[in-house]
Design a binder for these strands. Structure first.
Length: 112
DNA sequence: GCAGTGACGGATA
DNA sequence: GTATCCGCCACTG
């Protein structure tokens, strides 16, 4: 099948590469795709990721580690619950020590 | 077909 | 340092 949006496919690919206990930001993925300004589209892509359980959308948060999309999950507490299960600390819908768990695809994947 | 909106982010005032 | 605007691409109304 022809992918209507290659952008989404890339987002999914990166999201699935996020290691356990790590998190990244929409902008980081967008940047990896070469369109750092399209961070919104990354979030939109994650919205489509609902039908793709292999995509850890809960590991994708905004730039400050805020669970901005938790409301979009099956349950608003599912996102933080999953993150907590990965050893992360969530306080007021925000990842504590987010920077330490931050996973940048442009660095970890060694952009070639 | 046009306009508005969206799980964001950076820039400008 | 805080507040507001614009831009990005895709989807819905």
């Amino acid at each position: 099948m022809q992918e209507k949006s290659n952008f989404f496919e890339k987002v999914y690919a990166v999201a699935k590469l996020i290691p356990f206990g790590r998190v990244t930001s929409y902008g980081a993925i967008a940047k990896y795709l070469g369109t750092p300004k399209s961070a919104r589209m990354v979030g939109w892509a994650m919205n489509s990721a609902h039908g793709k359980p292999e995509i850890p959308a809960h590991r994708v948060v905004n730039r400050i580690g805020l669970l901005s999309g938790k409301n979009n999950f099956a349950s608003p507490t599912l996102m933080e619950d999953l993150l907590k299960s990965e050893g992360l600390t969530i306080l007021e819908d925000q990842i504590q020590n987010f920077k330490s768990h931050y996973w940048d695809p442009t660095e970890e994947l060694h952009l070639d």
